[in-house]
Design a protein around this nucleic acid. Structure first.
Lengths: 160, 160
DNA sequence: CCCAGATGGTTGCGTATGCAACTAGTATAA
DNA sequence: TTATACTAGTTGCATACGCAACCATCTGGG
């Protein structure tokens, strides 16, 4: 089975666009002294979870990290006071990760910066109607790849 | 300036979809024993360049790597015989990187694997017409972010 | 010509991440 | 009950990458 020209062009443009935006956004967030994209994702997932806590393995899957990757990221975030680890009484293998007030504050402090850079690099370069189209196509793609976007596919619409 | 709900949903879905696909594709390519996505990109850019060679800094920009990142990747690819470094007579600071026959062969060997996994993870999960739409929207996005997609935005349509 | 500033490439260092191996705890089935 | 398989999390190791510093070279204004 082969790719059509359109499929190939779509893939290439999609892939490059992501690379361009991810690098720029990382730099802007770092320059503004707020948490990185990956950390934002972790904090937001925790904030939106039941009781503002999740099991490590659930969180790892949600933020697309390996278990070991999340272990080390959680080490760092715990050192910085943004999250806390708690033993789980029901399953003693398991660890709950909870968002601290400081973690919530950092997520909220990052949001205006994050929002502006998404607008500048991404949304501001779309034509009218494109955002809806992209949301539909890639939302469906995520579903078919077996991933649930948090909170109705938005991962944080409510903010601001 | 704020984001609309659609813009936010579009960003989130786009970002997650990329993460899902990139991880899966990397694993498939590794399991098949062919070059990674990043290396494929380097080899293809060289193959399509004038004389199958580029300057290091041009190549770094084209494949979205830092200069130091490309230095090390080039070290590895040179060790593996996929590329060669050549001194530039016009500017003695500069180094040309050239694709070797082995490098070309490896790119061609990787292509069927790469093509199938893009079809399976990406193109196969799009609805009719979506590919054109995505190519248009993200092609425009890349342009506006100041990046030229190689070969008319396709980066390899001609293959196969 | 000469020097300041820019450019191309490399290297040291810190950091991030995945895989495989490991420990500990849970679930299943005989 | 006990053996076996599975799951959650951590750790050692290897790899990959960016930034800042560095050297060599080029360029442009005196």
């Amino acid at each position: 089975m082969s790719l059509t020209t359109a499929e190939h062009r779509a893939w290439a443009a999609f892939f490059v666009a992501h690379g361009l935006m991810a690098k720029r956004i990382d730099k802007v967030l770092a320059a503004a002294g707020v948490v990185s994209l990956e950390v934002y994702d972790v904090l937001l997932h925790l904030e939106l979870a039941e009781g503002r806590r999740m099991r490590m393995c659930e969180l790892a899957e949600a933020v697309l990290l390996s278990r070991s990757g999340l272990t080390r990221l959680a080490d760092r975030l715990e050192r910085e006071g943004l999250i806390e680890r708690h033993a789980c009484s029901k399953d003693r293998r398991s660890t709950h990760v909870a968002l601290t007030p400081l973690g919530l504050a950092e997520r909220e402090r990052a949001w205006p910066v994050y929002r502006e850079v998404i607008k500048a690099e991404f949304a501001g370069n779309l034509e009218p109607g494109d955002a809806e189209t992209v949301a539909t196509i890639f939302g469906r793609l995520c579903e078919r790849l077996g991933h649930r976007l948090c909170v109705g596919g938005s991962c944080g619409d409510k903010h601001d």
